[in-house]
Design a protein around this nucleic acid. Sequence first.
DNA 1: CGCAAAAGTTAGCTTGGGCTAACTAAATTT
DNA 2: AAATTTAGTTAGCCCAAGCTAACTTTTGCG
Lengths: 133, 133
Amino acid sequence: MERNQRVEDYMRVIYRLREQGMVRGAYIARELGVTKPTVSVALREMEAAGYLTIKPDRAIELTEKGEQIARYVIERNDVIFGLLTDIGVDKETAQADAGQIAHGISEKTLDALIDLRHYLTFIRKTPFGNIKE
Amino acid sequence: MERNQRVEDYMRVIYRLREQGMVRGAYIARELGVTKPTVSVALREMEAAGYLTIKPDRAIELTEKGEQIARYVIERNDVIFGLLTDIGVDKETAQADAGQIAHGISEKTLDALIDLRHYLTFIRKTPFGNIKE
DNA sequence: CGCAAAAGTTAGCTTGGGCTAACTAAATTT
DNA sequence: AAATTTAGTTAGCCCAAGCTAACTTTTGCG
C-alpha cells in the first residue's frame, strides 16, 4: 500500500484520537464517516504496510512511520488552517477546507503560504501596514 | 451522473481546447493524460447527463450547463493561480496546485482568498505597505 | 486515389475504496 | 448472571474510473 490520501487521513485521525485515550476502530469509523468493516479492512492493510500496529486488545498504535506521516499531515493542516482563520474564514469552514487544500499541494506552494502568513502577521503588527481595519 | 471532479475537469479542458479549434476526444485524452477509451466512455456519459453534445462529425460542444461549469471552474482556478503567482510560486507549480486547491473549497474560503489577493495588490501599491522588498 | 496514421469504439479486465448482512466477541447495564 | 449494547470481522457485493487489446472509421498525405 502506497502512501495515499487514505493513509494520511487515518494517521491524522489516529494521532488526534490518542489524546482522548485508547484508539479503537469504531472511533476511527465515526471520525471518518465510514463503516466499521471499511475501517477493519483498512487497518489490516495499514498494519501490513507498517503504518500501525493492532494490539491483542484491539488498541491501535502508530508506528514511527505512521507517527511521522501524522505529524507531517497535521503540520500542513495547521498552517493552512491558521492562514484561513487569519483572513477571516470561520473555524469550521477553515477546518474543512484546510484538509482539502493541504492535501496535494506542493512544498513550494506550502512554503509560500507559510511565508505569506508570516508576512500578514507582520503587516498587521506594523502601524503603516494596518490599513485594512 | 452527478457533477463531480471528473465532470469539472472535462468541462474546463474542453472550454480551453475550443480556443485552438474543433475539440476532439483524442485531444482531451492527451490533455488529461488518459487514454482514448476512457475519454470515449466519459463523453458518452456526459452527453447523456446533458453537459455536452457530440456532433455527427465527432466534434465536442458544451451545452449551456457545461459552459457554466467550465466558466465557474476556470474562474476559481484563475483566482487561486493569481494568488499563488503573486506570492512567488512559479507558474507551473501554481498551475498544478491551483487545480488541487480550487477543487473542493467552500465559497467562503474562495471569497476570503479573493479579498486577500486584492489586499495584497493594494498593499504592494501603497508606499508604506511596500515593506517586503 | 490509395493507404498509413490518427481518431473513436467496444469488450473485458483491474483497482481502490466503499457498502450491507450476518456473524462473533467483548463490554456494560440491569 | 443474563441481557443488551458496542466493537470487530468476514463474505460478498457495488461503483467509478481507469487500463489494454482489438477493432472500425475518418482524415489527410504522397
